[in-house]
Amino acid sequence: SSWGDEETTMSAPNDGYAHSAVAEGDDVHLVYLHDWPEKIQYNKRTYGTGWGTEVTIQADAVDYMAPVLSIDTASGDLYCFWAGSPEANKIYYKKQVSESWDADPTLWLDETSDGFPYGWYNFLTCVYQAYNNKIGLLYTTKTASPYNVKFDFLQLAAQPPTMPVLVSPENNHSTYDNTPTFTWTAGGDATSHRLVIDNDSTFSDGDNIYDNANLGATATTCTIEDELPPDNYWWKVAAVANSTENWSENTWTFEITA
């Protein structure tokens, strides 16, 4: 393989250092400091299509603070960090969800007491992508030597697990087996699974015939030990993480025959 043709990715960049990029699959997200008027711009290169239209993340930026970009790969959300706008000596960020940036910046860190160095020393550096629902940021404070190098991390909201998918017994199945085995595909990012069975299709009485909330993070099967009497039953499975249950999209029914 070889390098492709050079592409124009940004208009009026402020010096060669004032940009940051992350990849999402074959796509590229880019933020940079636009030169006069200073503003933080965003653009995305979609594989097979090319660069899109520039979007202003923050107007009235300062000319000595380059933005940095990170991505939460679990959700696909982007986080752009910068300092000095709208107020000096403070670090802000905006989040992009479903290709839409926050309207207003969020104030994260206040370094009014130390201040930031002016000019080439005044850089932020963040981790390329979130890890364990955290994004780390490294930055410099103080206006004269000796400077301080500080680290902090932004705690992200934990993502719920994805839904498990029921496999068997299939919907409307009939069987003589009164200790059936239930199988499903595990929910992504789950820490455990929960299987419930009841003869009430709405599970509304709160007293399930079978309720096992101790199935493992990657569990995909469970055989019940106590015999079920002949009847019609309904079953479903939840993926569990961070005190959140994400139930299977469907509730299936089966019949135990005499």
Rank of each mutant, 00 (worst) to 15 (best):
S2Q: 11
E7M: 03
T9R: 14
M10Q: 10
A12L: 14
S20K: 10
V22L: 08
V22Y: 04
A23D: 07
V28A: 14
H29K: 02
V31R: 12
L33F: 05
K39C: 02
I40C: 11
Y42I: 15
K44G: 00
G48P: 14
W51L: 06
T56D: 09
A59F: 05
D63G: 11
Y64R: 12
S70T: 02
S75A: 05
S75W: 15
G76W: 14
Y79I: 04
C80G: 08
C80V: 14
F81Q: 06
G84Y: 08
S85W: 04
E87Y: 10
K94G: 01
K95I: 07
Q96A: 10
S98V: 15
E99I: 08
D102P: 03
A103E: 09
L107R: 14
L107W: 04
S113M: 11
W120Y: 14
Y121K: 05
Y121W: 09
T125D: 07
C126F: 06
Y128S: 09
Y128R: 11
A130Q: 15
A130K: 08
Y131F: 14
I135C: 01
L137H: 15
L138D: 10
Y139N: 07
Y147G: 03
F151L: 13
D152F: 02
N171L: 08
H173Y: 08
H173A: 15
T179P: 09
F182A: 07
F182N: 05
F182V: 01
T183W: 12
A186K: 14
G188I: 00
S192W: 04
L195N: 01
V196C: 12
D198T: 00
D198C: 00
N199S: 07
F203M: 00
Y210E: 07
D211A: 09
D211K: 14
N212G: 03
L215W: 05
G216S: 03
T218G: 04
T218M: 07
D226C: 10
D231G: 01
N232L: 12
N232A: 08
K236R: 11
V237W: 00
V237Q: 00
V240I: 13
N242E: 14
S243L: 09
T244C: 12
N250H: 07
F254W: 15
E255V: 06
T257P: 03
